[in-house]
Design a protein around this nucleic acid. Structure first.
Lengths: 623, 623
DNA sequence: TTGTCTCCCCAGGGGAGACAA
DNA sequence: TTGTCTCCCCTGGGGAGACAA
């Protein structure tokens, strides 16, 4: 299934384009050229781990890429951040869709976690991985065109941009009336495609006619998809595809899909690999920059060491429909676990952000710490003290919010922002936990509560599919008694996890059900029922417990965890359940390892100082 | 994958055609009707084991249906006849090809073998299985037409035979100029197909026009394939396909294929099932009558009890291109193991036959004992004394062969046959072993020889892919020193197993190689080398041993085993090898169990009396 | 009765310049 | 410079009767 390119071999071949003409299948495409094509298809920002590099694998992120009907019942005793060594990297192209994907073989290195705990690792610069921008420079004779309606219509062919034709195709004899030539280009599978290249029309233009519709039809290309042509040093043409919409999962026989099996199976493999210290394979789409769940260790550890504050501005490089790889600016509006039930302490998309620009494409409102760079490229909280930039002053008039904003550290953060930001904060105001409840009380609370369920240890039982909680996001909150606020709902979308925390009996129920092979429908029905049960049983005290526990975590390493503010306003609450809230042992760990006293002491001072006057840098407009 | 029809449910539903309209997928095809269609597609002679029936499963036959690049190295300690109880029967239709197939769940009943040994079983009438002819009667409104070139051409539609149209389609209003109607028919998957049925042309004829080519294209039908239409009691139409060439294995994603995995995996499953007495699943194509590897126990045991003689005439019902289910007549020209190395004592295609008619289709020259019925429908050797039939006398002038023909029992069979038969015998004359070598000598020989290889017990090592030995059939015989005779080669095709018997060192070599994961190419090369080694090492003595041992087996139960006659004429033979011939323990068993004295005594008299004057019945021309 | 052929007609698509954004 | 439109022409296929086996 699929073309396999050995990255290492290909890299070795990289220099001698001309000689590498023979391949097993008789393809004249050199592997180096194939590699070029592969990377061209993958896009500028594709991330490729290096062999031997140390990386962080985030199962939570991986799970989100696997479409599955089956919700995850069991959260295995798996750290949200699995430290691994890259053993092998293979590049593939899906046979059915031409979609590029990467197969990475990882071997868990549990020691890294230990070393990190005792602060032994400082060589964070270790093996990063190649961002493909470097390679792009090497392939000048390439063009990528998004297909127009005319390009994909049944009448006529493909209109080649003049520059592209002149750069990539052999020159035509322009003395002729209608100069033409036949071109042959190979795709990632080595399949040859023939096109008639003609220069005609008034005014004259380059067209691909005969053969073009065959290609369009076979590859099932539609307008919006992009094709790219690439000329190697020896003149050989190759062509690739970048689809507008990823069709990967529509075809069950797709090779990528077959590798990834089910979410449960995948998780099991990882757990096994970690426990036996054996390799496991991970497949990912390099084009999905935002769902990069293999992170170079250096990048990850840097992001741990850097403080991230609510209200902090940041930049992030992204590939959108309009720009490939420009930096977009935004503001951090919240920090907290995306899925505190299944993956407590995970840094995966733990930052809630608000983008400066209204994107027509629904950009994630959650990003991972390693994806962003603080504006002004100055790391740490000092950033918050930088002078106001020109643009910020012009475009985003500072408005001092008329309410005190708790920053989750027990101190108030007093800063101004644009009206839009204010609006966001009005929704978010509920998010910041007030530390009225002491640390000891919290601990007492959560531990005591856990004891309610005998036999529950680190192997926890929970609900939730890929970590994004399903169901109507409004309903549980209504139940808790908050007023309905559209903005609030909007901002909090994807966060209403609490009512799904397994409580008392329902927890045990689920456990049993999970083992007894229910259908998906039954599971969903039961889940809905238990959602109801759950919020009926939750007590305000346990909610406080969670919030304050999160607030406490926050203190421990400068990485703020602020969950939706179920603490204020306090609704009148009928205490229906006596069993209270269960906090799995796992939740008491941050980054998969327990918080030590030293760490707490060390970090509180560094990162949790209040910012009295915050400022924002102009989003740099990149060309 | 594929449509699944529960045979038992369907049978229950069989009577109430009208009511059973609702199905899970909303299909209006009742399961009973679907069953009818399934059987119609499967063909008249399809065999369907009954739930709970006692059957004999023949792994050797099953292996032949599984195409595989990987030759079988290890013959597991598996009886060539596995006695099983049918636990479940499911009817399927391949999603890609519409090919019908059956899934049978079997549970081994090893006791049966024991019971058989001590002659405890006489209720041979036990559960046979339904031959579908019975059902055919129930579906009168059905027709099957082999597609012509015109039917499958892009111009115009399908020409419906008048009778068929009148019988199966709703009546048209013949008063109109060009009467027409739209028909809807469902295939085995419940998919609806719409056709315009029109009565036009001069002279008038029934045609299916609009919709027909879509059907042809989607089902990838070619001329020679057959379609069948079936009208249920409620008027519902369904249609099925019978392909001329089985495309089952061309598509690797075909559901049948995916079930059958590899030959090695399949064998392993069976061995496991036998040892743990657990069920195993078998998939087969009911249309392949000749490769029926699940045989009703009654049929099998009857065929054991009946004597089969060389020179005996028989009838066999077969479905050919021209006739569905007529009886073809033939003559038994040899009896012996098809694959004495891997499956010694197997009755699978142990009869070498010559058909009366020259079939354009290459009919198997080997059949299994249970497939045939002795001509005249009288079992036993008395059959040989029946008067000459008219047709035999007219078409096949009796010629007394000018050489005595040994019948394998130690007595000469003196009978006449047609010239063609004589020609066959001239080739076959070598096949009949002369019992010049005593029983004791044989035993001594084979046992002694086996001791040459220490550690070799019932688990034997052997070569051969699907049981049909590959390579040039001529070569080894040349080596043995026989004259080259085209007819001889022809007749003996598929029997030149001897040189592949594992000898001395080469045996051990293969064993090691098999375990060390060689490539297919390496295996084939090694096999060729060892074929050479093998015939260089074979001694005339060991060849005699085998033949006479077979001759002896023959005496034991009336089922003659006559291997290719390597005993006469005796060539001058350079005795290159001193290790001689290895006879695996398995080979000393017949039908998987040792021959007891009682059995020998019992059977010799019944079946091995010489036939002085043999006669032949006219092949009954069936309508 | 039915298989094949040929003729007719039409839809759809490849390929061209016109035209305009 | 290039996206879209329209026009032209050709191909191929569905559908009809002719014709013959």
């Amino acid at each position: 299934m699929g073309v396999l390119i050995d990255l290492n071999d290909a890299i070795v071949d990289d220099d001698d384009d001309e000689e590498e003409e023979e391949e097993v299948d008789g393809s004249s495409l050199s592997s180096a050229m194939c590699l070029e094509l592969w990377h061209a298809c993958a896009g500028r920002l594709s991330y490729m781990p290096e062999n031997g590099a140390l990386v962080v694998y985030i199962p939570q992120g991986h799970l989100q890429q696997i479409p599955s009907e089956i919700p995850i019942f069991m959260a295995y005793d798996l750290s949200p951040h699995v430290f691994c060594r890259v053993v092998d990297v293979n590049l593939h192209a899906d046979v059915a869709t031409d979609e590029v994907y990467v197969q990475v073989s990882l071997i868990p290195e549990n020691e890294i976690e230990e070393k990190l705990k005792i602060g032994e690792i400082d060589e964070v610069g270790e093996g990063g991985g190649i961002e493909s921008e470097v390679r792009e420079i090497k392939t000048p004779h390439m063009f990528c065109k998004t297909l127009t309606a005319s390009d994909t219509s049944s009448h006529g062919g493909f209109s080649v941009p003049r520059r592209a034709a002149e750069d990539c195709f052999p020159p035509l004899d322009y003395k002729q009336q209608r100069p033409w030539q036949d071109l042959t280009a190979k795709d990632l599978h080595g399949e040859e495609w023939k096109f008639r290249h003609i220069y005609r029309g008034r005014p004259r233009r380059h067209l691909l006619t005969t053969g073009w519709t065959a290609f369009i039809n076979r590859k099932k290309l539609v307008s919006g998809d992009a094709v790219l042509f690439l000329r190697a040093g020896n003149g050989q043409l190759s062509l690739g595809i970048r689809r507008a919409t990823q069709v990967r999962y529509s075809i069950p026989s797709s090779s990528m899909c077959s590798h990834q099996r089910s979410n449960v199976g995948m998780l099991k493999d990882v757990v096994d690999a970690v426990s036996t210290k054996s390799t496991f394979d991970v497949y990912y789409n390099p084009r999905e920059k935002l769902s990069q769940f293999i992170v170079p260790f250096s990048k990850f550890s840097k992001s741990i060491n850097n403080s991230v504050h609510i209200g902090m501005r940041f930049k992030m490089q992204m590939e959108t429909k309009h720009d490939t790889g420009r930096r977009y600016c935004g503001l951090i509006t919240g920090i907290g676990d995306m899925d505190p039930v299944l993956w407590p302490g995970s840094k995966w998309r733990s930052l809630l952000v608000r983008w400066d620009e209204e994107f027509e494409l629904n950009l994630q409102n959650r990003v991972s710490p390693w994806e962003i760079e603080p504006s002004g490229a100055v790391y740490g909280s000092s950033n918050m003290l930088a002078p106001h930039s020109k643009r910020a002053r012009i475009c985003q008039p500072l408005v001092k919010p008329n309410f005190p904003v708790p920053d989750g550290t027990g101190l108030f953060l007093d800063f101004g922002e644009s009206l839009r930001f204010q609006r966001v904060l009005q929704g978010q105001e509920l998010c910041y936990g007030t530390p009225y409840c002491g640390v000891d009380e919290l601990n007492h609370h959560s531990y005591k509560l856990q004891e309610c369920i005998p036999g529950l240890n680190s192997r926890m039982v929970a609900l939730g599919g890929t970590g994004i909680p399903p169901g109507n996001s409004c309903m549980p909150y209504k139940g808790v008694g908050f007023g309905e606020c559209v903005g609030f709902q909007k901002v909090l979308q994807g966060q209403e996890i609490f009512p799904e925390l397994p409580f008392g009996r329902s927890l045990v129920d689920y456990h049993d059900l999970g083992a007894s092979g229910l259908t998906v429908e039954e599971v969903h029905r039961l889940r809905r029922e238990n959602e109801l049960k759950a919020w009926m049983q939750v007590s305000p005290h346990s909610v406080h417990a969670i919030n304050n526990w999160n607030a406490r975590r926050n203190l421990s390493n400068g990485f703020k965890v602020v969950d939706r503010g179920l603490t204020l306003p306090l609704p009148s609450w009928p205490c229906l359940g006596s069993q209270g809230l269960i906090l799995p042992e796992k939740s008491r760990k941050l980054f998969g390892f327990p918080i030590t006293e030293e760490m707490q002491a060390k970090n509180v001072d560094d990162n949790c100082s209040p910012a009295k006057d915050s400022s924002y840098e102009t989003p740099r407009k990149e060309q």
